[in-house]
Design a binder for these strands. Structure first.
Length: 424
RNA sequence: GGAGAGGUGGCAGAGCGGUCGAAUGCGGCGGUCUUGAAAACCGCUUUACCCGCAAGGGUAACGGGGGUUCGAAUCCCUCCCUCUCCGCCA
């Protein structure tokens, strides 16, 4: 949620920034400010009535104690109408507060100053590209065929056991998954992140805190009997560790990393591009999360990008860095870089990481604050990024490194896999 | 799943119908003392919203929601959570 004070004090800026998402925010912001005014006037009125009521109660207490029963009765009679007025005002206040809250929930984060305007992925800006695009031998195949041929990836068994989009890995394929997870975790830990193993299901408050609810309700698996959601990313449980907290400035930055499986319904995204591991309902991901002072958050975003680049280089994958345009960014983000790797057999770029600065959009929902030098609580900035998402990394790794003799494992990973080649 | 106990400020822990945002202790911050430190002593120490340039003032919050009452941390209802015991189980 955008901060009300920001909308009040920097109305013009908010409007300009939201324009980069191609939304004309004027009427949205008008409505927010009129609800806000209504809220404040109602509260003033209510507070005044309650103050009167409190005064009367004190008076009655005094009168009772001094035995002036009749005067007390008279004062008591006066409270009836006041109470009714206060009750109705309270009802109005709650209604307008809810309306304002719900309304603010419909407004996405305001893109930061450097975000390019635009509405489609074509308008994203390629910041850099690195690594040679491999030339494959004749008869090279896409990863889903490789997986079947080598016998380490079984989409069909996933269908039997669960349904489409739930891959089964076996043998060297399973080991490769585990190796990647360990490799990513070790690199993050070496970079100063604290490892977290969070719950894989979250409650509605957590899903709201990071912005999955109400915006992306249909994208999460929902265990309705217990009111819990399967996490779509470790960002949700890990960031929510700090919900309703005020951390001391000295504790910042908070750097956390976690591996979790991620569950996504991907409702409505079926088609030609979703074969094999390109888009699945369950995949593994190592996520880095940071809680930062506002003045540092953009430098930190760059630092996180560098971390991810290091991983991609170590895996010897050709990749490019995209700065997302306003229209392609996630609802809660102020600025997002996507990292894509080239998957040579499909001749496609696959998104393997998304690194975002949410500024105070999440922390405002989370009530995640820090105590600054002036001892006043202020909203912190939150950031997170995939480092990295497995399924697509595996796809690119398999396709790019296939040879007639087998599939080569990048050197950096061999200590983790225990083998240098995947054989039939 | 069954039975019982309990949820109060950063922590521990009182309060059980009125002046209680809340005793006391610990912790934290500031000060006195000291060459410095410790000890001792003194003071301060929640958050949100509203009004105000500010000083300051108002309202709300004792797990959540509802009720009784002029007045509730205190009484009633309900939900949630934690702990102990029993059962079941990785």
């Amino acid at each position: 949620m955008l901060e009300l004070t920001f909308l009040r004090e920097h109305r013009e800026e908010a409007e300009q920034r939201l324009l980069k998402r191609n939304i004309d925010a004027r009427s949205l912001l008008d409505q927010a400010s009129s609800l806000d005014e209504k809220r404040r006037s109602t509260q003033q009125e209510l507070d005044a009535r309650l103050a009167e009521l409190n005064g009367l109660s004190r008076t009655i207490g005094d009168l009772m104690r001094t035995g002036k029963k009749e005067e007390a009765e008279a004062a008591r009679a006066k409270t009836t109408e006041l109470k009714a007025t206060a009750a109705s005002l309270k009802e109005q206040l709650e209604a307008v507060e809810k309306a304002l809250h719900d309304h603010l929930c419909t407004i996405p984060n305001a893109p930061s100053k450097n975000v390019p305007p635009g509405r489609t992925p074509e308008e994203n800006v390629t910041v850099m590209q690195e690594g040679a695009i491999p030339t494959l031998h004749a008869g090279a195949r896409p990863h889903w065929e490789l997986g079947e041929e080598y016998g380490f990836l079984h989409m069909d068994l996933g269908v039997k056991v669960t349904g489409a989009g739930f891959p089964v890995y076996s043998g060297q394929g399973a080991k490769l998954q585990r190796a990647l997870i360990s490799f990513f975790l070790d690199r993050a830990i070496a970079a100063g992140y604290r490892e977290i193993i969070p719950p894989h299901m979250v409650n509605a408050d957590s899903a709201f805190g990071t912005g999955q609810l109400p915006d992306k309700e249909g994208q999460m698996y929902h265990a309705t009997v217990d009111g819990l959601y399967l996490i779509p990313t470790a960002e949700v449980p890990i960031t929510n560790l700090y919900r309703d907290e005020i951390v001391d400035a000295a504790q910042l930055p908070v750097k956390m990393v976690g591996y979790t499986p991620c569950f996504r319904r991907e409702a409505g995204s079926y088609g030609a591009h979703v074969r094999g591991l390109n888009r699945v309902h369950q995949f593994d991901k190592v996520e880095i999360v940071r809680i930062e002072k506002p003045e540092n958050s953009y430098a930190v975003l760059d630092e996180m990008v560098e971390h991810v680049k290091g991983l991609l280089r170590a895996l010897e994958l050709p990749y490019r860095q995209l700065l997302l345009c306003g229209g392609d960014m996630g609802f809660s983000s102020a600025m997002t870089y996507d990292m894509e790797v080239y998957s040579a057999a499909q001749e496609r770029w696959l998104e393997v990481s998304s690194i975002s600065n949410f500024e105070t959009y999440q922390s405002n929902r989370l009530k995640l604050r820090y105590r600054g030098e002036d001892k006043k609580p202020r909203l912190a900035h939150t950031l997170n990024g995939s480092a990295l998402a497995l399924a697509r990394i595996v796809a690119a790794l398999l396709e790019n490194n296939q040879t007639p003799e087998g599939i080569r494992i990048p050197e950096a990973l061999q200590a983790y896999t225990g083998f240098a080649m995947i054989h039939k």
